[in-house]
């Protein structure tokens, strides 16, 4: 008997597929080695041929495109409408697993869907595995500000639903793109969303901080807002962006769109450089997933060193200018 299909919700951002979708498809293929269903990409509306090929090469065996009765009022459906469409499709096909990125959109759509389907949902997972004996998805996520990890399962209700944090899984192509089946489905979902978008403002820096490969962050140890000018220089040399601790944001040295941490952005760059940041647990919650962490701090006992891969004990105002000079 088939263990059921694994679906990945295809999130689009201004017509582009969010990279987390490819991460989830690639991971879905690995999970599916223990299962016997198919890996299916569930998308809303039309896809370009190039996008279909991308989905295929990251592991989708089939694409299901969902359409509502009415054209989306703003060119794209909002999370309320997406939840309606996915609900109709999931009810019809009964996949066993449904994954979405833990993005603002994914974390808005999935809870609405979970209630409609009467099933469990695990938020913001950082690891997924399959219990091979019971064919059950094991979903691991941080809790208590990242102090602990919890592994959660949804043994009986289906689908097993999870949102997954972007950048935690690799984005490995699974195969060469091949022609895959596309199934179009139309659903008569009830009406359109009662929400009206009056305005959308895209903030470049905000986009950058969660997407950038290099983040150079500063904290209260900078001593003054001017210190961010120095970090800006270093970030520029490394094609990175500037982040900040809440300590620095609260002092008004930099806007809160740069804040990293539990109440700021979660970043998982390839390189995170923490300058004059003590490493409070709420800050760590937003950056510990980084591939390499370098900390610069005067205090050899600063907790940031506990999670840093590389540490420099010293005055950032002495060391950073030297580094910047060498990068010239």
């Amino acid at each position: 008997m088939s263990t059921g299909d694994l679906w990945v919700f295809v999130e689009k951002r201004e017509e582009e597929i969010n990279p987390v979708v490819f991460e989830l498809l690639a991971k879905g293929c690995l999970l599916n080695e223990h299962l016997s269903g198919s890996v299916i990409a569930a998308c809303i509306g039309k896809l370009k041929v190039s996008q279909r090929d991308m989905l295929s090469s990251y592991g989708a065996e089939k694409v299901i495109s969902l359409f509502g009765e009415e054209e989306a009022s703003h060119g794209s459906y909002d999370y309320i409408e997406i939840a309606e469409l996915l609900y109709a499709a999931v009810k019809e096909s009964k996949p066993s697993i449904l994954l979405a990125g833990a993005t603002f959109l994914g974390r808005s759509v999935m809870p609405l869907l979970a209630v409609k389907l009467g099933t469990g949902l695990t938020a913001d997972c950082t690891e997924l595995e399959v219990d091979p004996e019971r064919n059950i998805l094991l979903q691991t996520r941080p809790a208590f500000g990242g102090n602990i990890l919890a592994t959660i399962e949804c043994a009986v209700k289906r689908p097993q639903m999870a949102t997954v944090r972007p950048h935690v899984f690799g984005m490995d192509m699974v195969r060469r793109a091949c022609k895959i089946e596309i199934e179009k489905r139309h659903y008569n979902v009830s009406g359109i969303s009662p929400l009206k978008v009056l305005e959308t403002v895209i903030e470049k820096e905000k986009f950058d901080i969660t997407e950038s490969e290099v983040v150079v962050s500063g904290g209260r140890g900078l001593g003054a807002s001017a210190g961010f000018g120095l970090l800006e220089k270093l970030a520029h040399k490394l094609n990175g962006v500037v982040g900040a601790s809440r300590g620095a944001v609260d002092l008004g040295w930099i806007s809160n769109s740069h804040q990293v941490g539990q109440t700021g952005h979660t970043v998982n760059p390839r390189l995170y450089i923490a300058c004059g940041i003590s490493g409070a647990i709420q800050h760590l919650a937003g950056m510990k997933g980084s591939e390499t962490i370098i900390a610069i701090n005067e205090d050899p006992d600063a907790p940031i060193f506990e999670i840093a891969d590389y540490g420099i004990v010293g005055d950032l105002y002495e060391i950073l200018p030297k580094i910047i000079e060498r990068l010239k």
Binding site: N147, C154, Y310
Partner: peptide, 23 residues
């Protein structure tokens, strides 16, 4: 519908290598 199966503390990232010496 969901159950917590296991709780554990995150692994430390291993040891920190310190970059030392003069500037």
């Amino acid at each position: 519908p969901t159950r917590v199966k296991k709780i554990f503390s995150p692994e430390g990232k291993g040891s920190t290598s310190y970059i030392e010496g003069n500037l």
